[in-house]
Computed example of a mutant assay.
Amino acid sequence: MHGIRPAFALDPRQFGRRLVAHDAPTAPEAMLSEDFKLFAATFSAGFLFVSILVA
Rank of each mutant, 00 (worst) to 15 (best):
residue 51 S to K: 07
residue 38 L to K: 15
residue 24 A to F: 01
residue 37 K to G: 11
residue 16 G to C: 01
residue 11 D to R: 10
residue 22 H to P: 01
residue 43 F to M: 13
residue 45 A to D: 14
residue 19 L to Y: 06
residue 40 A to T: 12
residue 39 F to N: 08
residue 49 F to Q: 09
residue 35 D to C: 12
residue 15 F to M: 06
residue 33 S to Y: 09
residue 22 H to I: 03
residue 29 E to T: 08
residue 31 M to P: 11
residue 4 I to W: 06
residue 51 S to P: 00
residue 6 P to K: 06
residue 31 M to G: 12
residue 36 F to K: 11
residue 34 E to H: 15
residue 21 A to S: 03
residue 27 A to Y: 01
residue 51 S to N: 04
residue 53 L to T: 07
residue 18 R to I: 04
residue 38 L to H: 15
residue 34 E to P: 02
residue 11 D to N: 15
residue 12 P to F: 00
residue 54 V to T: 08
residue 23 D to P: 00
residue 8 F to W: 09
residue 22 H to A: 04
residue 9 A to H: 05
residue 1 M to E: 07
residue 20 V to T: 08
residue 53 L to M: 06
residue 39 F to R: 10
residue 33 S to C: 08
residue 14 Q to F: 13
residue 2 H to Y: 03
residue 44 S to V: 14
residue 11 D to P: 01
residue 53 L to F: 04
residue 54 V to S: 07
residue 44 S to G: 13
residue 31 M to E: 14
residue 24 A to L: 05
residue 12 P to H: 02
residue 50 V to L: 14
residue 51 S to I: 04
residue 42 T to Q: 14
residue 29 E to F: 03
residue 35 D to K: 13
residue 41 A to L: 14
residue 50 V to S: 12
residue 53 L to E: 06
residue 50 V to I: 15
residue 43 F to R: 08
residue 17 R to C: 03
residue 52 I to V: 15
residue 7 A to T: 09
residue 5 R to N: 02
residue 5 R to Q: 06
residue 29 E to M: 07
residue 3 G to W: 01
residue 1 M to L: 03
residue 9 A to M: 10
residue 20 V to K: 12
residue 26 T to M: 02
residue 15 F to T: 06
residue 47 F to G: 12
residue 36 F to I: 15
residue 3 G to P: 02
residue 47 F to E: 04
residue 50 V to F: 13
residue 44 S to E: 13
residue 52 I to Y: 07
residue 12 P to I: 02
residue 55 A to T: 08
residue 55 A to S: 05
residue 5 R to L: 04
residue 38 L to D: 15
residue 30 A to S: 09
residue 25 P to W: 00
residue 26 T to L: 05
residue 10 L to S: 13
residue 23 D to M: 01
residue 33 S to W: 12
residue 20 V to G: 02
residue 19 L to Q: 07
residue 45 A to K: 15
residue 47 F to N: 08
residue 43 F to S: 10
residue 44 S to D: 12
residue 19 L to I: 09
residue 31 M to L: 13
residue 38 L to I: 12
residue 42 T to D: 15
residue 37 K to M: 13
residue 50 V to P: 01
residue 40 A to S: 15
residue 32 L to F: 12
residue 30 A to E: 15
residue 16 G to T: 01
residue 26 T to R: 06
residue 17 R to F: 06
residue 46 G to D: 11
residue 19 L to T: 05
residue 27 A to E: 05
residue 8 F to N: 14
residue 10 L to M: 07
residue 28 P to M: 00
residue 49 F to N: 10
residue 20 V to A: 11
residue 12 P to A: 02
residue 55 A to H: 04
residue 28 P to Y: 00
residue 51 S to G: 10
residue 21 A to I: 07
residue 13 R to H: 03
